[in-house]
Design a protein around this nucleic acid. Structure first.
Lengths: 205, 205
DNA sequence: ACCTGAACACCGTTCAAGT
DNA sequence: ACCTGAACACCGTTCAAGT
C-alpha cells in the first residue's frame, strides 16, 4: 500500500486514518445513495461512514464530487460487463444483455437512475467515463450490424441512451417492473428498416 | 366572475387582489419553471409575479403544490391535443403525432421534463390527470390496433411512458435534439410482432 | 496532515403585524 | 381576508481549534 505521494520535489505523508475515512465514505455513499437517491443529506452519508460532516469536504470538494466518484465506479462496472459480452457468440443477444444490464443497474441504484435521467443538464465530470462506455458499446453494435441484426445507423451512444429510455419509460408508467416490456419494444425498433412497411419511419438515411 | 364561495352555511368574500395574485403566480411559475426547472427558488417565482414570498404559501400549501398546479395544466393541454388527434384519418399518424407532442412538451418545458423523468417516485396529486391522459391515449391505441398498425398488447399507459422514454433517451445521449431518431426507433418497435424474425422479442403473449 | 463541530449562507415554510 | 417581511428549520459548505 502506497502511503506517500510525491508532490513537486517533496513527499507528503498521507495518514492512515485519512485513507480509511475516504474508503468508508465512498462505500457508505455507495449504499446510501443507491437506497435513498441524490437528495439524501451529506450528514446521512457521513453518519454511515462514521465520520463528522466536515470530513466529507476534506476528501471531496462538494457533495456532487462524491456522487460523481460513486457513479463513475458504477459506469466502470457496466463497461466491464460490456467487455465480457464481446465474447458472447450471438451479437444480438450480447447487445440485448448489455442494455438489460444498464436497465437493471438503474432499477437497483436510485442515484444512478437519477443521474441517468438528468435530462438536459449532463453531469460534468462523468463525460469521459460515458465516452468510454459508448466506445465499448460501439463494438457491440458493429458486431450486430455485421450480422445484419440491427439498423445500420445505430451507434453505441444511441444504445446507451436506449438504456435510459427503457427504464425511464417504465417508471413513467408508474410500474418500474414493466421495464422488460419497454426493453422489448426498443429492441424491436432496432432491427434493420425496410423489411415490411408497417409503421417504419426511417427519419435518417 | 365568481367572487364569493359558499363554505358551509356562510359566504366568504374573495378579495380581488387575491384572485389577481393567484393568477400572476400560476403564470409566473409556468414560465419560470419551464425555463429554469424545479430547482428555482420560490423567491424567483414570487419576484416575477410581483408578490412577496409569503404570499405563495397563502395560495399554495407548498412549492410542490404550485408545481403540480402548473404541470396539471400542461397535461390537460396534451390531453386536449390527443382528443383532436382522434379525428386524424390515419390511426398510426395520429398515434405518432401524439407521442411527438408529448416529446416536444418535454423539450420545451424543463419542469415538465423533470417531472416526467421523476423515476421511481411518482408525483402524487398528478395521478388523476395522468389517468385521464392515458384513457384518451387508449382510444388512439385501439384505433391503431384495429388497423393492425401496432402491437395488440400495447396500452395507452405504455404510449405515455414511451413519450418519456424517447426524450429521456435522447437527453442521455447528450444531444436532446436527437429525439426524433429515438422516436422513430420506438415507433418502429410498436408494430405488430411476428412478421419477420430479426430480433423480435415478444416477452409477453 | 487531518479530524471535528460550531458557524454561515441559502431556501422552503411559518407567523405576527399591518391594511 | 389577505399581504408582507422577519424569523425559523434544514442542509451544503467553510473554517478555527484540537490532536
Amino acid at each position: 500500500m502506497l502511503r506517500g505521494t510525491v508532490v513537486g520535489e517533496e513527499v507528503v505523508h498521507v495518514r492512515a486514518d485519512a485513507v480509511r475515512n475516504r474508503e468508508s465514505l465512498v462505500r457508505a455513499a455507495g449504499s446510501v445513495l443507491a437506497e435513498s437517491g441524490l437528495d439524501v443529506p451529506v450528514a446521512a452519508i457521513a453518519d454511515r461512514a462514521g465520520v463528522a460532516k466536515g470530513t466529507v469536504f476534506r476528501h471531496f470538494a462538494s457533495k456532487d464530487e462524491l456522487v460523481v466518484t460513486v457513479v463513475a465506479g458504477l459506469i466502470d462496472d457496466l463497461a466491464a460487463r460490456a467487455e465480457t459480452l464481446l465474447a458472447e457468440p450471438d451479437p444480438l443477444t450480447a447487445l440485448r444483455e448489455f442494455v438489460a444490464a444498464g436497465v437493471e443497474l438503474q432499477a437497483r441504484d436510485l442515484a444512478f437512475c437519477q443521474v441517468a435521467a438528468a435530462a438536459e443538464q449532463q453531469v460534468p465530470g462523468l463525460t469521459d467515463r460515458r465516452l468510454r462506455l459508448e466506445q465499448i458499446a460501439d463494438l457491440l453494435v458493429r458486431r450486430a450490424q455485421d450480422a445484419g441484426a440491427v439498423r445500420a445507423d445505430l451507434t453505441g451512444r444511441d444504445v446507451v441512451g436506449l438504456m435510459t429510455a427503457a427504464y425511464q419509460g417504465a417508471c413513467a408508467t408508474g410500474d418500474p417492473l414493466r421495464w422488460p416490456y419497454f426493453l422489448s419494444v426498443l429492441v424491436d425498433g432496432l432491427h434493420p428498416t425496410g423489411q415490411d412497411g408497417a409503421g417504419r419511419t426511417s427519419d435518417r438515411a
